[in-house]
């Protein structure tokens, strides 16, 4: 464990807890894409298949349970909670799941480390996580209003993967392990997807104006 990875995990943890807390306290999911949340639940499910088979550390297991629990809770709130679901803007959140899931699945079947179920699922989760934010970014473009909790959520989500890239650089130079090129590429693509959001987020923060994404 190095400081970059710990900072990355904590940033990721805060991002999902901020979102869960927002939905739980104000009982609203305005501006949140259910599609992206469902994709994240799928990412964690396919990423953590080894949850009960390979014990790595208490930290690892606890964090996996938190990520699984929080992502499914968020999906449950938006889908089932009698108050929260009313604030879900399903007419705007229309990104088709299969436009993202199918290409990632095909890519994982074509490009992977080993052709085993767990390995292909793990690779699928890497590709899926890289693009799972797209429905949320599309929704933000459409609704154009970004309340600052949603802005913070997306910012923290992007920051966590950027910190992971620093972690992979650190591990590459300091550990006898190697970071596979698939992990590098999926992580870099994911961070680049946030890059334009980061630009507008910093602009609004610097000029102290409300965050507006160009149409």
């Amino acid at each position: 464990m190095n400081i970059f990875r710990l900072a990355g995990d904590m940033t990721h943890l805060v991002s999902v807890l901020v979102l869960l807390l927002k939905i739980h306290t104000i009982k609203s999911c305005a501006g949140i894409s259910l599609k992206t949340q469902e994709l994240y639940a799928l990412v964690f499910t396919t990423r953590y298949l080894d949850l009960f088979t390979d014990y790595i550390s208490l930290y690892n297991t606890v964090m996996k349970l938190i990520f699984l629990g929080s992502s499914f809770s968020i999906v449950w709130y938006i889908r089932r909670h009698k108050i929260v679901r009313r604030s879900y803007d399903k007419d705007q959140d229309t990104f088709r799941h299969y436009f993202i899931v199918l290409p990632c699945l095909v890519l994982a079947l074509l490009i992977h480390h080993k052709f085993t179920f767990k390995e292909v699922m793990w690779t699928f989760s890497l590709y899926l996580e890289a693009v799972a934010i797209l429905p949320q970014l599309v929704l933000l473009q459409r609704t154009r209003n970004i309340d600052n909790l949603t802005g913070q959520y997306v910012f923290l989500l992007g920051a966590y993967r950027a910190l992971y890239i620093l972690n992979w650089i650190y591990r590459h130079y300091t550990e006898p392990h190697y970071v596979h090129w698939i992990t590098w590429i999926a992580g870099i693509v994911q961070t680049l997807l946030y890059a334009d959001f980061f630009y507008y987020y910093f602009q609004s923060w610097k000029n102290n104006v409300k965050l507006q994404l160009p149409a």
């Binding site: 990875r5 995990d9 990721h12 990423r47 080894d50 390979d54 790595i56 550390s57 690892n60 964090m63 996996k64 990520f67 480390h113 793990w122 992971y164 972690n167 992979w168 591990r171 550990e175 006898p176 392990h177 190697y178 970071v179 596979h180 992990t183």
Partner: peptide, 10 residues
């Protein structure tokens, strides 16, 4: 031959 990392990552 290095063995692969990142499987201990989240």
């Amino acid at each position: 031959e290095k063995d692969e990392a990142t499987k201990d990552e989240l």
